[in-house]
């Protein structure tokens, strides 16, 4: 066994160790290399940025915990962006486990320990204002603060359950639920995940079905996202945007070119681009986890390219390719 053969047969745990080290070090150094944005992500950002309180969007958490590292920053980014512009957000989940992801994502946006969070006002807490007929965001905030409620210093704004957001959650055979929502959202979800009746929600009265919704963003780690195109876009023309894992992202370029989706965030890079756009447009003050992860992504990609080059050098220089060819002939 020559040197090159020994190299090719190296214990793979050394490669594992190299990946581990190269992943940890850039985090500790913290370089913050700039990221340029692409039209695929800019189109989604611009679309959401044009919306206001009279519009509504769906953010679908269609991923399981396994792919949350990629999908969660996308969903969180768009929810934050919508909240910043007072756009009502319906949140759904395709799988039982994605229901947990939806709750975790919402918690991340509304967690007081994170600066720039959105302070939740639960549905029951502002029942008296609803009964008094106050349902527009601006009036609600004024009345709520006049009642002595003070927005914490590190909070970005109030969000009223039923006015700014509705946590719809999971339902079985979700593709048929999407189809059903093209007629009526309340028929599919008599209650939200917190047990509130949907028909009492002001945002539902203004947006009764998917026909009255301006965008559905699906963040997915599987082909679940296709259901939104098939059952919402093709049935009633709802604009759809994708936030998908990198593994799947290349598969959906045909849908961007065909105009069936308005844009796509592909993997951590896509999420990082959205974070950059939010900072550039004063939606948030700083970038998030996806952007911080991109330095590490650079280092790991370089290491993997190096491994490919080294593997090929060892394979050809050591003569392994000739032995394989001879074996093939024999």
């Amino acid at each position: 066994m020559n040197f090159w053969d020994k190299m090719l047969n190296i214990d793979r745990r050394w490669i594992f160790l190299a990946i581990g080290v190269v992943t940890i070090i850039p985090f500790l150094i913290g370089i913050g290399m700039p990221i340029t944005t692409t039209t695929e992500v800019e189109d989604i950002f611009d679309f959401v940025n044009e919306l206001g309180p009279e519009n509504a969007i769906f953010v679908a958490f269609d991923f399981a915990p396994g792919t949350q590292a990629e999908c969660m920053p996308m969903a969180v980014g768009v929810v934050r962006h919508a909240f910043h512009n007072d756009v009502p957000v319906f949140m759904t989940a395709y799988f039982p486990l994605s229901h947990g992801m939806m709750m975790a994502g919402f918690d991340y946006v509304t967690n007081p320990s994170i600066d720039g969070y959105y302070q939740v006002v639960e549905f029951a807490e502002w029942a008296h204002l609803r009964e008094a007929g106050i349902t527009t965001k601006a009036e609600l905030v004024t009345e709520w603060e006049n009642a002595g409620n003070v927005l914490p210093d590190n909070a970005a704004n109030w969000v009223f359950e039923g006015r700014d957001y509705a946590l719809l959650g999971y339902a079985p055979l979700f593709h048929l639920v999407i189809l059903g929502m093209t007629s009526s959202i309340a028929n599919q979800y008599p209650e939200d995940a917190n047990g509130n009746a949907l028909i009492e929600m002001p945002m539902l009265n203004e947006h009764k079905s998917l026909r009255e919704v301006d965008l559905a963003l699906t963040t997915a780690g599987s082909s679940a996202c296709m259901s939104w195109i098939t059952y919402a876009r093709e049935k009633i023309g709802t604009p759809i945007a994708f936030g998908v894992t990198a593994v799947m992202a290349t598969d959906y370029y045909p849908y961007i070119q065909s105009g069936q989706i308005i844009g796509q965030m592909g993997g951590l890079r896509g999420a990082a681009e959205y974070e950059v756009l939010m900072v550039e447009n004063d939606v948030t003050e700083s970038t998030g986890k996806a952007f911080r992860g991109m330095d590490v992504q650079s280092a790991d990609h370089l290491l993997i390219i190096l491994l490919i080059i080294m593997g090929n050098i060892a394979y050809f220089a050591g003569g392994a390719h000739k032995r394989h060819q001879m074996k093939g002939r024999g």
Binding site: I19, T23, G66, T67, A69, E70, T245, A246, V247, G267, L268, R269, G293, V296, Q297, D300, H301, I304
Partner: peptide, 8 residues
């Protein structure tokens, strides 16, 4: 890219 992102 995707696999590395999950590790990140």
């Amino acid at each position: 890219m995707g696999r590395i992102s999950l590790l990140i």
